[in-house]
Structures are given as structure tokens and as C-alpha cells.
Simulated assay, not measured.
Amino acid sequence: MRKSAFCFIGFFILTLSPTSYAGWEVQWIDTFDGDGVDWSSWTAQTQANYNNEVQCYTDDDYSDRRNYDVSNGTLKIIARREINSCVTLNGATKGWTSGRINTKDKREFLYGRLESRIRFHNLEAGSWPAFWMLENRIQEQPIKGDDDFVHWPNRGASEIDVWEWFSNEPDTYITNFFNTLPGSCGAEYRYHYPNGGQDVLDWHRYAVEWTEDLISFYIDDTLVVSRDMSRCSRYEEPMFALLNVAMGGNLGGAIDPNLSQVVMEVDYIAHCQISDSNSAAFCDESLPYDDAELPPTPTTPPTNDDQSPSTPEAGSNSYGLIVGLFMLFCLRRRSRFLNA
């Protein structure tokens, strides 16, 4: 009887055990596979003029001097040294052109994981690339009049920096929060590259995982820092993504006089929500996706190397084998007991 009770309790515990850890499902992704910026997802923020920076942001993804080059499956945001009269800043004279794009009003996110795979091409002084987020009611381009009249960094216009790198402090990058609340709403943290500034030249996945009570930052599979947001009343409404390269100014600093061009290269950017269909750690094009948000995948049948929502997880197969062996053990024990 004790053996029967053991089998019953063990089987009950096993059947309650989860078959796999929660992973991610893509809600939106841009893999930059075309020949220009997908303006249905992005807006060129040409009216941005902050921090005493010296660039004029453009929407140019077509000319010989373009600031956005989509080719070979990546986006290159290119800052170029050229004296110009910036039309979108009332003719202000600027020494550089560059790119700043955001997904405001087009692709906005509430919680989940926002991830981008990025490398930077230059270590010379003066550049300031960033991958970051803003709350969607900020009074910044594009302005639709849908309650987006809030000034930074008040409620509705707070900021989260996922990856912000300064070439004049090349060994680290910044994760940071900007809001008008003190104390319990995050803080700056600097991640030190293991090999110093040289690491920025290599591809890395930069990501933020965001819930109502916790915000965590990652580089590749390394947790950089987590922040308890349970006492923070911010970051509980949709945000949008930004990618840009600033030059000079308060944080970019003095620009190398021999520098004429810098490049930030982006392989993809994606937003995911938690899913129990897999145990993926990253948010990229290999994952299942929400049909309501993304176009259908090609009709080519998946190969053994493809990841498909209908393919059983290895963890699920192992779990099923364990349950089956346990049941066989119990049945054999029960048979011996009855034949005794």
C-alpha cells in the first residue's frame, strides 16, 4: 500500500509540473531585408535638436549622401560631416547630417522584451549612438494630437535607455531611466565591456525586459542590471523605440577633426511578449509570431532545423519520457503486488 501511495503522489506531482519554461513570441520585428526604411513602422524625427548636438537629422534613405542605408539585410544609420542649413530646424547651420528614427504611433509596446542586434563601426571621439524608448504621449514628432502634448520627462514622456554609448568614454555603455519621480523609478547603470571600447565594434544583442514591477537589461545572454519598479508609477503605459546617431554636444563631446563619417549598423529590432510555446531566451526572427501583427511566413515546409510553434520542445519530449517510465515502474510494482 505504501508503494501504491508513493506512485499516486509521484504521478500527481509530475502531472502538475510545467513542460517547459516560458519563452517569447514576436509581436513585431523589422529585419531590414528591403532596400529602404519601412516607413510604415518608422518616422524620421527630423525636428529633433537637443543637448547642443551638431547634426541635422534627415529622412534621406535614397540619395548618394543618404543617412539611412538598408542593404544586405541590415540598416546602417550614417552620420556624415557636411556643413548644411538644416531646413527642418528653421535653417540652423549644422556641421553634420545624421539619422534618428522612431516607431511612435506606428509600433508601440506595453511590457515584454524589446531587443536589437547592433554594432558600431567607429571608435573615434565625438559620436553618440543609442537604442532607447520613450513613453508615447511625449510632445515629439510625429504629433497626432492624441494626448501627445507631454514634455520630457513627465508622466507620459519618461525615457528608458537600453544602450547608449559615448565614444569619449568607450569602455562602458549606459542603461538609464529619465522621469520626474525620485528614488523608486530606476537609475543609471554602466556596463563595462570585457575588452573595452573594442567590443562595440562587434555584434551584440541589447535588450530590455519589462513588466509592471521589474525592468531588466541584457547584453547577449548576460543580465546587466534589474530594477524593482513595484513602487514606481511610471512605465505603465505604451512606449516606442528609437534608433539614432548624435554627434558632439553635451555627451558626444569634442569630435575628432579627422572624422568624416560614422556608422551604426542594426541587424534587426523586435518586440516580443511572453509565450509558453517555447523556452527561447532571445527575441528574433527565429521565433513564433503573432499572426495579427506580422505577415505570414513563406509556405515552404519547415526543415528539421526550422523552429515552428507546432514542433514539440525537447524539454517536452524529455518530460513525457520521464512520466512514461514512472508510470511503467508503478504498473510493474502494482502487478507484482496483485500476483503475490
Rank of each mutant, 00 (worst) to 15 (best):
S17G: 09
G23W: 06
G23R: 03
V26F: 11
W28D: 10
G36W: 12
G36V: 03
S40D: 03
T43E: 13
A44I: 07
Q45M: 15
V54F: 06
Y57G: 11
Y57D: 15
N67M: 05
Y68T: 12
D69V: 07
G73C: 02
L75V: 03
I77P: 12
I78G: 06
R80Y: 06
I83K: 12
K104D: 09
K104R: 03
R107I: 13
F109G: 08
L110S: 10
R117V: 02
F120G: 11
H121A: 12
W128H: 06
P129M: 10
W132G: 13
M133D: 13
M133H: 05
E135F: 09
N136I: 04
Q139T: 05
Q139W: 01
Q139L: 11
E140D: 14
D146T: 08
D148K: 02
H151M: 14
D161R: 03
E164P: 08
E169N: 14
D171F: 02
N179M: 03
A187P: 00
Y189K: 00
Y191P: 14
H192R: 11
N195R: 10
G197L: 13
Q198G: 02
Y206K: 05
V208N: 12
E209M: 05
E212M: 13
E212V: 06
L214E: 09
I215T: 07
F217V: 05
Y218R: 01
Y218V: 04
T222F: 15
R231A: 12
Y235G: 12
E237S: 12
A241S: 14
L243G: 08
N244L: 06
V245P: 05
N250P: 00
N250M: 07
G252W: 09
D256P: 00
L259C: 05
Q261S: 13
Q261H: 11
A270T: 09
I274N: 08
S275M: 10
A280T: 10
E285L: 15
E285S: 15
S286N: 14
L287Y: 02
L287W: 02
D290Q: 08
E293V: 04
P295I: 04
T297S: 02
T303P: 15
N304W: 15
N304I: 15
D306A: 13
S308E: 13
E313D: 15
A314L: 11
S318M: 10
G320C: 07
F329E: 06
F329R: 04
R333Y: 08
S335G: 09
S335W: 02
R336Y: 05
R336A: 07
